[in-house]
Amino acid sequence: MIRQSWWKILSVVMLVYTAIAGFLGEVPAKPILNETIRNLYFHVAMWFSMMVLFTVSVYYSIKYLRTNNHVYDIYALEYAKGGIAFGTLGFLTGMIWARWTWGAFWSSDPKQLGAAIALLIYFAYLVLRNSMTDMDKRARIGAVYNIFAFAMLMPTIWIIPRLVESLHPGGMGNPALDTHDIDSRMRLVFWPGAVPGWTLLGVWITTLRIRLQLLAEKRMAQ
């Protein structure tokens, strides 16, 4: 499935659709938000993509611990790196958005804190891996930390924003978006276009990197 091209073409089509409909389509006129509501197609969708990539990374970490197959470790690492890339993009787009709606790039909002924590945790994962030279040990301890960190991160991201006040759309409830803010025209871009489009792009980038790593391993073995 990885080498098939239909889903890569689909991803490009979806992202072109997202870009065109996202910038030219009609959006509801909301006070304060105004045209920045279009950031939903980029910022929020990138967070979705990051969550998917991190989840897949943990899935492969569990698989590694069960089978001790080195290939799964490469999968877990590259999916985590893909997630970090999309997390950073989501972070930056969120900060640009915050500048024009809240008035500052950084205002220590719980959502921003949660995002920063998530990135710090995954940077720590990379540091931990690089601190070991033995390949088996690196893979095993990395997998253990990946699972532990993911399990600790989920309550942070999904529960704490519900407990403290936030300026972020969705406010006290849903951590990602307020369903009252968007209408059916936006949903038609967001769900069929932006979310699967960015996620597929993330998976595509990651699978390319995985194939590169596997090739490098093969050359090392020769």
């Binding site: 804190l113 924590i117 710090l120 945790i121 720590a124 540091v127 931990l128 601190s131 070991m132 040990k137 301890i141 930390y145 960190a149 600790m152 309550p155 942070t156 704490i160």
Partner: peptide
């Protein structure tokens, strides 16, 4: 300890995790 590292690594791994 398994990574044969000092307490410094512990702090790097732990501080983001205990923020919540």
């Amino acid at each position: 300890a398994r990574a044969q590292q000092s307490a410094a690594l512990m702090a790097i791994l732990g501080f983001p995790l205990v923020i919540p």
